[in-house]
Design a protein around this nucleic acid. Sequence first.
DNA 1: GACTCGTGGAA
DNA 2: TTTCCAAGAGT
Length: 336
Amino acid sequence: MEAATNIFSSSIYSWYEKHGRKDLPWRKNITPYSVWISEIMLQQTQVKTVIPFYERFMKKFPDLNAISDASEEEILALWTGLGFYRRAKNIFAAKEIVKKNFDNNFPSTFDELVSLPGIGKSTAGAILSIAYKKSFPILDANVKRVISRHDKVDVSEKKSDNKLWQLSDLYTPNKKIFEYTQGIMDVGATVCSIKKPTCIECPVSKTCKTAFEEIKVIRKSKKEKPQREIFFKLAHSNNKFLLFKKNSKSFWESLWVPYEDEGIKNDKIFKKPLKRNQQKFNHALSHLDLMITIEIFEYKKPFKISTNREHQWICRDEIKNYGLPKPIKHIIDNHV
DNA sequence: GACTCGTGGAA
DNA sequence: TTTCCAAGAGT
């Protein structure tokens, strides 16, 4: 068993040295902080999507010192369009804890890392192995796919994650941990791809229990995604936009959106506009299909409204300093 | 353990 | 076109 696991891990890290994706932006100037930011951004998000967000983020906040006094709003602003906005709020909360409890030194132990909001077992493993070169396993979607195929683990079974964590732990080597961790993710992302794995190029195909097998597509039970209608009123005047900070525990929490009609009573906080028009479109979230209606009102000048919802007239040039959902940002940029 | 939480790449 | 799902974590 010992020898077999050695062959697995050494095959992976040897492969990495030849074929790894070493040009990714988070694989240059590696620090615990940079690994942390990249790992959070990469949660459930494809590499290609993350790259521009990561570069923008690191340009503004290149290190822990630079981000230590940042507001949650500044961090959310850099997250606009990336999705899963809780991650940005968690980065803010985590760096506050690092400042307060760790004297602004990034933690380097597993227990300390997983105590930070947004860092779970796999992200902690990635930070420990990539930034600190400590031998810890990860289990992201790539590793899950590589190992489940290699050892023929049925991922549709309820407790398959437990077995996969055991195997990931078993294969994780003590030496070359950096190259191994990066390597197994790269194998999963490039060679052991979802639909058409190229087993001929795989470093562990000799021991893989499903190498060169046909990938059968498993149809999951298709359950209807719930639909929800939401109605916004977007007031603007002289290139300023009246936006409200969402405080619901639902989606887009803490992001800035137009006035949301609750539909209970017909709110009359908007006076008669100079012009008005309407946009209707669908927008898919991960768990909801939104049908969005935005009424757009133009006014001669900004006006005060009476509401206890947090709100602000925000200049077009200042919008970039606020966190907005993608479709709202799009409307303001392209249709007003 | 099942939901919630965004957006877009890829086929 | 629709469908799947991505460097997961929190509740």
